[in-house]
Design a protein around this nucleic acid. Sequence first.
DNA 1: AGTAATCTTGCGTCTTCGGCAATTCGTTGA
DNA 2: TCAACGAATTGCCGAAGACGCAAGATTACT
Lengths: 208, 208
Amino acid sequence: MSDSPRPPRPRLPLRERKKLHTRRTIADAAFALAVEHGVDGVLVEEIAERAFVSPRTLSNYFPSKEAAIVAAGEDDLSLLADALLERPADESPITSLRTLLSAGVRGWTPDEIVALRAKERLIDEHPALLPHRMAQYDGLEDAIRVAIAQRMGLDPETAPHPRLVAGAAVSVVKTAIRVWVRQEGDEPSIADMVESGFDDLEAGLVPD
Amino acid sequence: MSDSPRPPRPRLPLRERKKLHTRRTIADAAFALAVEHGVDGVLVEEIAERAFVSPRTLSNYFPSKEAAIVAAGEDDLSLLADALLERPADESPITSLRTLLSAGVRGWTPDEIVALRAKERLIDEHPALLPHRMAQYDGLEDAIRVAIAQRMGLDPETAPHPRLVAGAAVSVVKTAIRVWVRQEGDEPSIADMVESGFDDLEAGLVPD
DNA sequence: AGTAATCTTGCGTCTTCGGCAATTCGTTGA
DNA sequence: TCAACGAATTGCCGAAGACGCAAGATTACT
């Protein structure tokens, strides 16, 4: 373990960090209240109050109550993108993604996992949330696509391959989460499911 | 061409057909007006009027103006599901999907293709529409997943494989559309792109 | 034909979304 | 350190939208 001179992680200016914090606070408040009272049982006013901002400010951060709720617990996509770019240049995209995504998932704390389950249940119960969660997955896909295209020296907009890889990888994560949420206990873990999902992908999706 | 005794396609009762028709009329009106005046340049009242229903009725069909706009031109998922179940039992899911999806896409009329391009542009310009389009793709994925699981005798809820296959197949379609919309001319066709997307998938998504 | 089930609609109400302008807070350069 | 600039927060307010409810119209069933 050499302490490699970590490329200068440009520390965010205070203003940006504050924005991030506000955004998270709002999302967490929205999510907690939604779990407690149901999606339509909570007013944006209440969410704003719990997050110590005005309703007007909440509007600046999220275009809708639903978007705020779903945004809770989302992890930072720029980190994933950075990590993707730092993988060995000769590694295949799928391998990079397998490594990073399964590690990322494995790194979730028990609290985060509990929250995830709650979030899934909430979404199942409130169809109005679903579009926003799907848009979130699409955002993840975007981040992956752009990073992969960059790694491969392709145009992120028009190259099909990075899009496919990103879409498939996101499907693996989505599948792992959805199946995991529906199963009885906590085993197999989400990370295990991500791994086997990638196995399936790399085998060309042939049944068994 | 033997006229195979097509399993009795249960003709929909009048009421259902009427509902379908209303739904389409509303969606088409919403889409047309949105293209013309922009998403926020059109009132639900105007959409309702053009679709010969009351605004209140529009609410019964769609939970939001955005959902109505995006619903325009969506094709019937039950048809795809039926078709999937009618494929030879020994065919692999991926092969079935390749066949049906590329045929489906190839069957789009020029008008539908023009509309598709307009729809994509509209969504690009109006981020509020994106979540709803994503939810649409998720609906397609659901239909595929359930049919595949049924074909394979698996539980649609908890079996990972059908979810993965469905997700990957939808990614192929999504990719084909998005790339096609961004390219200069109309060639290669969307159907060609679907085919090569499946090639890529079946090869395990290895780069070239 | 007559009854039951389902759709449509109008009305009223509550909520949300976002423009605008004033204020507060963070950043930057001297 | 301080001043000047840029950015975020907030209050106010109006325009729409979403939906419960109940009455009337339409379709389905026997």
